[in-house]
């Protein structure tokens, strides 16, 4: 457990060199949101997205200093190394979501002085939706990074995101056509269960993604 903590601290300490960038990002989003209403809606999505991209740079930091080899000399097993990276990425994205939510609420409060429960619920829904969405992307992104490394992985994950989006949209259209469901009907059908179904699905896939990454890493020659 202490070794796992050490690995997570290592990633957090490394990203500390980006603390000015992170602070600048938060201030920029807050000011942007204050000046333009449209930007407020994007904060809960773009802020965690920026944080997640920073978290993924942990692979590049390791690559730059060839840290993987050194880490394998420490009293940790390969499973812990992969587990720590998943926890770190998830935590850092979660921080991004929390900062995004706080910024959004702050801007809304500054602008309207008083925000109702409905707006708060909407903010929370967008934030959690964005978080689950980013987790979904990570399910594919992290094993790709382990398989191809930080350099190649970056290009492959871009292609992967485009293919994934296209695939999901084509599959949804095809299923709706076959079953004769319209988009409105689908939204009504899934309304009550959507978050729960997606949440459970993403958690299960996230665990599967970890198992795949672990296997890739265990077999990887460095």
């Amino acid at each position: 457990m202490a070794a796992l903590k050490g690995l997570i601290i290592k990633d957090f300490q490394t990203i500390k060199s980006y603390k000015t960038t992170i602070l600048f990002m938060i201030v920029l989003f807050t000011i942007g949101g204050f000046l333009n209403d449209d930007i407020i809606t994007f904060i809960p999505v773009t802020m965690p997205l920026c944080f997640e991209m920073l978290a993924m740079s942990g692979f590049s930091f390791d690559n730059l200093s060839n840290s993987d080899t050194y880490i394998r000399t420490l009293p940790v097993n390969k499973k812990d190394i992969v587990k720590a990276r998943y926890i770190y990425i998830l935590l850092f994205t979660l921080f991004g979501s929390l900062f995004g939510l706080i910024c959004t609420i702050l801007v809304q409060l500054l602008k309207t002085k008083n925000i109702g429960t409905e707006i708060l619920i909407s903010d929370l829904s967008i934030t959690s939706g964005a978080f689950v969405g980013i987790m979904f992307v990570q399910i594919f992104q992290i094993p790709i990074m382990y398989k191809f490394g930080a350099e190649k992985g970056r290009i492959i994950q871009l292609v992967m995101i485009i293919v994934l989006m296209l695939g999901i949209s084509l599959a949804t259209t095809a299923i709706m056509k076959i079953w004769g469901i319209s988009l409105d009907n689908l939204a009504v059908m899934l309304k009550d269960y959507l978050i729960a179904v997606l949440g459970i699905m993403v958690i299960l896939l996230y665990i599967l993604s970890f198992v795949i990454s672990r296997r890739i890493y265990e077999r990887k020659e460095i």
């Binding site: 050490g6 300490q13 390791d62 200093s65 080899t69 050194y70 420490l74 009293p75």
Partner: peptide
Amino acid sequence: KQDIAVVLDDSFLSEYLNPKSINKIMKNFY
């Protein structure tokens, strides 16, 4: 690995870490 130490010519923790951070990290491993 608790009782061995390895120094490699071409590999170590990230170069964006300072000795103070390295102390914070390493005390968790050993």
